[in-house]
Design a protein around this nucleic acid. Sequence first.
DNA 1: CTTATTTGTTCTACAGAATAGTACTTATGC
DNA 2: GCATAAGTACTATTCTGTAGAACAAATAAG
Lengths: 111, 111
Amino acid sequence: MPAATLGKLELAALLAVARLDDEAYGLAVRAHLAGVTGRDYSVGAVYTTLQRLEDKGLLRSHASEPLPVRGGRSRRHFSVTAAGARAFREAERTAAALWAGVGSFTKPRLA
Amino acid sequence: MPAATLGKLELAALLAVARLDDEAYGLAVRAHLAGVTGRDYSVGAVYTTLQRLEDKGLLRSHASEPLPVRGGRSRRHFSVTAAGARAFREAERTAAALWAGVGSFTKPRLA
DNA sequence: CTTATTTGTTCTACAGAATAGTACTTATGC
DNA sequence: GCATAAGTACTATTCTGTAGAACAAATAAG
């Protein structure tokens, strides 16, 4: 199976992990998503999505050592797998095709 | 309600209608989607989506006169409403923000 | 040391979107 | 009238989106 296509939040989360790189853990991803999409996803929404991506083999995770700061408990760090990178590029191609030609389409013809 | 965000197929269908303009009816949209996304959506998938968009007020439709060709029955033509155009632009902004900075990200760091 | 506070993650549920498949309708062509 | 083509509508099932509360672990406070 060609991994079917990613959902929108899934894709956004995948990109977030890729970008955050070493800092890619649950709450950080959530914060990043808030910045990028302009909306506030619930904690559950984010973790569920990350979990699904890992189940699909697009992400992998490992627990970090606790940090010596207040509330500094162990984090679950995510990273993109090879399959994840592929899915990512495919999504990129599709998105490009989708939006191609509509660049100057800021004023669609209304009925 | 801020119209919630559009699903991926919904967005693709909205764009298809906008582009096809006068030729935006069920099967044509379906064909366009196939070209753009590279995958074959079932007939049902397309109509269900278009219907949803109309229910949300992002599209409107009207029946055309039957064409004098074999099988040329009346088509249901769709067009983008003002609300649809707004949704469209908002999706465009979000997509831009999402992909911004990942342009040269064709080779994500793997774990 | 006992409690409060902070950061982080897991669990449980449900609504909505994606998607397929089949049936139904209306034209034309013989 | 009957076969065929082009379209659309209906029904059902799975997957994704999304929220909210519960749970865990670490340090700061008193």
